[in-house]
Every structure is written in structure tokens, then in C-alpha cells.
Amino acid sequence: MANVLIVDDSPTARMLVRRCLQIAGYGADQMFEAEHGRAALDVLRVQSIDLAVVDLNMPVMDGRTLIRFMRSSPRHNSIPIIVVSSLVNDTAAAELVAMGASTVLKKPLSPAAMASAIAELQGVAA
């Protein structure tokens, strides 16, 4: 059970992430949504978040900046971050993991990919 923060400027993308989490059997207590990185920081300030699912290409504050903020914060630097983006190739994935992303998934997201990513994160955490 967990609190999940979904960060994407597209309501369609946020809904797809929500559905994939549900189909993947990830039982979230609550799913919080933010339409860009700055709004995500507002949520992080007042909520205890166990998993963040983050897009890259967003207005106001993009995903890379949000990841840097989270990894520089003692309170948030251990939250697993799944990056979900269409802009993903091997180079970008390596760069994002080096920056602090826990794993990187390609849009459009599938429930199987989400389930596999979460299983991997739980394995790492165990």
C-alpha cells in the first residue's frame, strides 16, 4: 500500500498511468496528480509519497529538474522515481538513471511494463 504521485501535463497520460498502476495490481492508498514539476513539489511538501511516476517534457518545471530537486532533498531523495516518457532511448535512459531516476519506461505505457518496473523496484527495496 502506498501513496503515488503522478506528474504529467497531459490528463490523458495521467489517466493511463493510473490505469496501468491499477491493472498492475499496485494497491495505492491514494494517487496524487500534478501537471508539472513545480506542482509536484507542492504535493511533496504536504504529502508522504512512496512512489513518483514522472514525465519529462512538461511546462513550468520539466521532469529532469524535478528529479534533481527530489534527489537533492534529504526528505525526498529515497522516493523511487519511475520516468515515463516518449523521449526514451538507451542514451536518455542511462542519463536519467545517472541523474536519479529509479527506472525509465517508454510511452505509451503498458500495464506489463509498469508491473515489471514495480517488481524490480520492490526487489531492490527488499
Partner: peptide, 8 residues
């Protein structure tokens, strides 16, 4: 999604 995947 299409543009991003194509670019990648």
C-alpha cells in the same frame, strides 16, 4: 508519444 518515439 509518436514524435518522441520517432526522435528516440
Amino acid at each position: 508519444a509518436i514524435a518522441g518515439q520517432a526522435q528516440a
